[in-house]
Design a protein around this nucleic acid. Structure first.
Lengths: 325, 325
DNA sequence: TGAGGCTGAGAAAACCTTTTCTCTAGGACG
DNA sequence: CGTCCTAGAGAAAAGGTTTTCTCAGCCTCA
C-alpha cells in the first residue's frame, strides 16, 4: 500500500481523491509514489463504501446485435473516460432469464441500467420500473414516465423522400415492412406527408424476398411505373435493386432507390451501393451513456421521449440533387 | 438484515452458504426468512472477502460483432447459471484504449478474461500474459503457453468439399479471401487434400464483388468450367451465386456452391440459400466459459490450442448426397 | 500572554460479508 | 460423578477503501 511511502492510509486516500486538507507538497508526493508503485485502488472496497460501482448494465434482446452493437459502442465510448464499465446481457425475450440477469446486475450494484432492443414499440420482457437504480431506455419502448431515447423515424423518412424528389423522381412508392411495427407506420406517414404525388405504400416482411415480390407486383401490373422507391429497410431495398437490375431497369437512372438503416453489410454490397438513412445509433448510445451517468450521479433528468435525428448516407442508388435536364 | 429474524449475522451467512455447523432446523428457518425478506447479499462485500467477483471480462476487437456475438452468447449461457456476469469491452485495435479497458477490468477484480477477435492469426493489441487473472483466448491468437480455443477450419473445409463431391461435382474450384489470412491457407490446404481433381484456388478479398469477378474470370476463359465451387466465406459465395444466376447458370443443378461462416443474413437471403460451414461459435463460447470458470476456481487447465469442429448447414446451393443419375 | 481559529494529518468508524475462533451446554463414557 | 468431546451458535477479525472526527501545533489578535 502506498501509505508505506510516507503518510497514513487516510491521508493517502484524500491525496489521491483530491479531498481533505493537506499541504500541496504532501499531496504531490503521495500521487508520485502511487504512480511509481502502480497503486490501483480496489474498486470493490471503494464501491462498498461509496455506493457507486462505476459499472452500468446494458440489457438487450437484440441477439443479432444489429442495433445494440452500435448503441453499445456509443455508450462505452462515452463512459470509459469516466471510469465506468459496461455489463452486456443478452436476454432473448425470456422473462425468466431476463430477471436473473437483472438480479445479477443489482447484486453487483450497478449504477444504472440501459435497456435496449430491436423495436421501438416493444418493451423488454422484464419490468425495470421501481428499481433502486436509474434506468434509461435506448431504442426500445419504456414506460411513460421513463427516460427514453429513440431515433426520429419520421424525420429520417422525410430525408429519404426528399432525396428522391431532389433526384427528380415524380412518382415515388414506398415498400416497407409489417404494418404492426410502429416505425413502419411512422415512416409511411412521413412518406405520405412529404411525397407530392399520390401515395402508394406496400407492406410486407423485412426481407429481400419481399423486395423482389413487391417489384414484381409493380412491374407486372398495368399502368405507370414508379421512378423512385423508398424502402422500409436496407434488406428490402437490396431485394428491390437486385430485381430491378435483373429486369433491365437501371438504378438510379430509371428508378432511384433509398433504403433505411445503413446496415453496411447490406447497403454497401448492393449493386449499386444503397443510399440510405442512418439512425445514428452510436450517437444515441453516447447520449444514453451521458444520461445514465447524470442520473447515477443524482442529477435530475427530465423524463419523456427524446427523438434523435437520422442522417442520410448518399451512395449511388439515389444521387440526390441532380442538375436539371 | 435477515439476522434480525432469529440468529446472528454469522449464522445467517453460514446457513445461506451451506457452510458451518448448525441444526437443519435453523438452516431452513434462515433460508426461509431470507427468501421472504428478499435478502440479496452484497456482491461487492462478498467479493472483497472471497477475492471472487463472479464477473469475467470479454475483450474483443470485432466491433462488428460478426464473430464475437455468438461467442458472447455462448459464454453468457454457460456462466449465468453460476452467477457469473460478463463485461463486454470493444477495443477497436487501439492499444491505449485496450489498456484502459483491461485496467478497468482488473480494478473490478474480474475472475478472468476471455480474449476474442475476428482473426485466428492476429493477437489483440494488448498483452494479457502475466496478468494476475486467468485468460482464455477464444477465436483470436494467444501466446504459445496460453489456453486457446479456435474452430477447426481444415475440418470445416473438408466438410464443404466432401459435400460438393457427394453432390456429384467432378471439377471443384476454391474461391477465397486474402492469402495473408491463416484460415484462408488452412481452408485451401484442406481443399487441396480433399479434392480429387486438380486444385485451383483463387485468392481475392472478402467481398461479394470478388465473387463476381472470380466467376467472370472462370467463365470468360477458355476451357472447362467447374461444376462445384467452394467459397472462402458467405459473402464471396453470395457474389458467386448471384453472378452464376445472372449468367443463366443454375445453382445447384449446373454448379453447386458451398460457403463458409453461416452468416445468416447473407447465407439465408441468397437465391438459392447457401449451404455453408458453421464454425459453431456459440459452442466455442460455451467452452471458453467453462474453461475460464475452471481456471478461476483454481482448477488446472491444460494450455495449448483446442480446435472445435465445424458443422455443415445444408441449404439449397449444394444438396449433398444426390441419388446417382 | 492567553484564547480562539485554522492548518495539516492521523485515528477510527463504516460499508457488508465470510471465516475462523471461542464459548456454552449437553451427552457419552469411565 | 467428573471429564472429555461435540454440536450448535455467536463473537470478532478481516478485506481495502472513504469519510468523519479528533488532535496537536502554530498563528493571530486582543
Amino acid at each position: 500500500m502506498a501509505a508505506l511511502a510516507g503518510v497514513s492510509i487516510s491521508t493517502a486516500s484524500k491525496a489521491l481523491n483530491g479531498s481533505g486538507r493537506m499541504s500541496e507538497e504532501t499531496r504531490e508526493r503521495v500521487k508520485k509514489v502511487a504512480l511509481e508503485v502502480g497503486f490501483r485502488p480496489n474498486a470493490l472496497a471503494r464501491g462498498l463504501i461509496t455506493k457507486r460501482s462505476f459499472t452500468i448494465g446494458l440489457l438487450t434482446n437484440d441477439t443479432y446485435g444489429r442495433f445494440t452493437l452500435p448503441v453499445m459502442a456509443g455508450i462505452s465510448e462515452e463512459l470509459v473516460g469516466h471510469g465506468v464499465s459496461v455489463f452486456l446481457c443478452a436476454i432473448e425475450d425470456d422473462p425468466e432469464r431476463a430477471r436473473v440477469h437483472v438480479d445479477a446486475m443489482l447484486d453487483k450494484s450497478v449504477d444504472g441500467i440501459i435497456a435496449s432492443g430491436k423495436r421501438l414499440d416493444r418493451q423488454l420482457p422484464v419490468d425495470l420500473s421501481g428499481l433502486a437504480v436509474p434506468v434509461v431506455y435506448a431504442f426500445t419502448k419504456g414506460p411513460v414516465d421513463g427516460v427514453t431515447l429513440r431515433s426520429d423515424d419520421e424525420q429520417g423518412a422525410r430525408l429519404a423522400v426528399r432525396c428522391l424528389i431532389d433526384a427528380g423522381c415524380r412518382r415515388i412508392v414506398h415498400i416497407s415492412g409489417p404494418k404492426t411495427f410502429q416505425s413502419v407506420r411512422e415512416r409511411a406517414d412521413a412518406y405520405r406527408a412529404t411525397n407530392d404525388g399520390p401515395p402508394e405504400v406496400f407492406h410486407g416482411v423485412w426481407s429481400e424476398a419481399w423486395g423482389h415480390e413487391a417489384v414484381a407486383q409493380l412491374w407486372e401490373r398495368s399502368g405507370d411505373k414508379p421512378d423512385g422507391i423508398f424502402c422500409g429497410n436496407d434488406q428490402i431495398a437490396r431485394g428491390v435493386v437486385d430485381d430491378l437490375r435483373e429486369r433491365g431497369v437501371r438504378v438510379p437512372e430509371d428508378v432511384a432507390v433509398v433504403g433505411f438503416d445503413n446496415w453496411e453489410i447490406v447497403a454497401a454490397q448492393t449493386r449499386p451501393p444503397l443510399t440510405t438513412v442512418d439512425m445514428n445509433l452510436r450517437t444515441l448510445g453516447r447520449e444514453a451513456g451521458r444520461l445514465i451517468l447524470a442520473m447515477s450521479e443524482g442529477r435530475e433528468v427530465q423524463s419523456g421521449i427524446r427523438k434523435l435525428p437520422c442522417s442520410l448516407v448518399v451512395r449511388q442508388s439515389c444521387r440526390g440533387l441532380e442538375p436539371p435536364v
